[in-house]
Design a protein around this nucleic acid. Sequence first.
DNA 1: GCTGGGAGAGGCTTA
DNA 2: TAAGCCTTTCCCAGC
Lengths: 253, 253
Amino acid sequence: MNFELAKGVIEKAKTSGEMSIIIGTCMVKYEGRAASKLSSGDRLLIIKGDGSFLIHQSDKMQAINYQGPGAAINASIEKEDGVEKFIVIAAREKPKERIEVKFSAVQFAQNFKMKDDEKLRVFGSERQLSDLLMQDLQLIEDGLVPIQQESPLHKGTIDILAKDKNGNFVVIEVKRRDAHLNAVSQLERYKNEMQKKGSNARGILCAPGISETALKLLEEKGLEYYKLTYQIGNPSAKIIGLQKKQKELNDFF
Amino acid sequence: MNFELAKGVIEKAKTSGEMSIIIGTCMVKYEGRAASKLSSGDRLLIIKGDGSFLIHQSDKMQAINYQGPGAAINASIEKEDGVEKFIVIAAREKPKERIEVKFSAVQFAQNFKMKDDEKLRVFGSERQLSDLLMQDLQLIEDGLVPIQQESPLHKGTIDILAKDKNGNFVVIEVKRRDAHLNAVSQLERYKNEMQKKGSNARGILCAPGISETALKLLEEKGLEYYKLTYQIGNPSAKIIGLQKKQKELNDFF
DNA sequence: GCTGGGAGAGGCTTA
DNA sequence: TAAGCCTTTCCCAGC
């Protein structure tokens, strides 16, 4: 396919706000927060109306190179060793980065008008689970009363802050997926932070599962784990159960 | 555009291994690890040869819904309230999930042969920096000798393990981007683990920057931070400098 | 509007 | 298979 045509497609999209689809044989170079190089092969290049820039290979889910909204796009045709190349560059400042796509052949280039004002609605997010749990803290323990949700702390944000019947602060961290070491460290930071504020504090992790090592660390740190069972539904998820889990005492001996 | 044609495109791709590009007006439903719903709008659907399935809106860098390689793809035409719809479903087990894309109109549908055997080569990865630092630990401190790189620990993996001139173990964690709370917790876990093994241990974090809160936590935990300056190059990154940073003592008073 | 900062979600690699 | 870790992210809060 003609490079002039492909160049025209990209330039037109700049003013029309359409999405450009280019398919061809190209090399890709990236310099910015990291650097990378991809030798010649067939790729799909997508340039969206907002400047988002994506290069896909023929497999894998993820774009091999990309740049977020707001990139400045530039298309040109240049001779290299007497051979014409079609070059598309996406560049931006802050952070300074630049992707160069050098086509030796273009199979396809076309713009598409895309009208779309809809937003994705997600059910079963961590925030939703947290909302549900907030409404029914009794699931965890009798006498637990909510104080605040998404409580901003100096070192992070607590999912749910509550008080137990003995007047202790209880920091609750909710995870949608199995919890790992990071989740435990996160909870530990919050608990420590609360303890510094004076009164005694407990930390509770609620997740559908937890790794062996994470559970061990959690117990070492004096935190508690509750297995959270839930069902995803529309328009909202639903908590099915919440069960305290811990190693048997004799596991320690 | 004709739905039969679009259906034919997708079915052909199943055997040819080509990449399908479909553009049209559709609704999207997802059920699996979470659930989501997207009302009608114009979208780009990409189905790659390996079964990767991507739905893009007209803006943002990321696909709004997707499924990794290995998904089973199914295309059909169905009547709904007397109106024809073109439906594409991507499903897989383990984890069980399913995306349904329901088109009310198709603007474009075509397959593309994509030949590409190249792999992306990245420079300036964390591992590369770690390699470089390993070769010249003197940059951090005189008398530091390497013991092991990528040392597997019970609770994670230490980037670099060394011994200082006083015989203390030194755990070194390298980050290529600014360090945050997580990085500090990670280092703290390693240091504790080493200390449990008997001898005294220090923990050093090397990163191009660190957040205020992370630095504070790091100091509370008795860890050390070195500002790592490096340059990304080809074929390898290069360490420019390494400088010990800490709050002035009077900051504490 | 921009920046800093924390947290999320998926793929990667190795045991 | 499971776990840990990484990341060319995202989103919110504050200035």
